[in-house]
């Protein structure tokens, strides 16, 4: 993976909850799409697991297939979060690549 992170995280605090949104740069290939030039099948390459942590506590774990869109987007709402809290998103795909990113709630 490139040195730039594949994960973008945004958070917004509301009186009742904190909304965390994440966008991951990933091709999510199904393995059925054909290359336009060569006509060959592009091998399946998709995220399998994604974990969402708040101050190192696992809040959600998501298992997915290639039914999730290219450049996956997810959003969660934490009931109670304070300024300075850390949220971590990490993913792992079927070819063994992975990435993780921390975000501090403002």
């Amino acid at each position: 993976m490139a040195s730039r992170s594949t994960i973008k995280i945004r958070s917004k605090r509301f009186p009742e909850h904190t909304l965390v949104r994440t966008l991951i740069a990933h091709s999510m290939e199904t393995g059925k799409r054909k290359d336009k030039d060569s006509g060959e099948l592009i091998p399946a390459h998709f995220i399998q697991t994604l974990s969402f942590k708040h101050n190192d506590k696992l809040l959600s774990e998501c298992h997915m297939g290639f039914g999730i869109s290219k450049n996956p987007f997810f959003s969660f709402k934490i009931k109670q979060a304070n300024v300075g809290d850390k949220v971590t998103i990490s993913w792992k795909d079927n070819l063994g690549f992975s990435d993780s990113k921390d975000h501090i709630i403002q």
């Binding site: 708040h54 809040l59 959600s60 997915m64 039914g67 987007f73 959003s75 969660f76 709402k77």
Partner: peptide, 28 residues
């Protein structure tokens, strides 16, 4: 789940009780 997808299960999430019962996602 999407009924007529080749793989009907799109995703499954576990939710901790400190999360609101809310999920946003995009799928095919």
């Amino acid at each position: 789940l999407s009924e007529k997808n080749p793989v009907p299960l799109v995703a499954k999430f576990t939710l901790d009780h400190s999360l609101e019962p809310y999920i946003g996602a995009r799928f095919k």
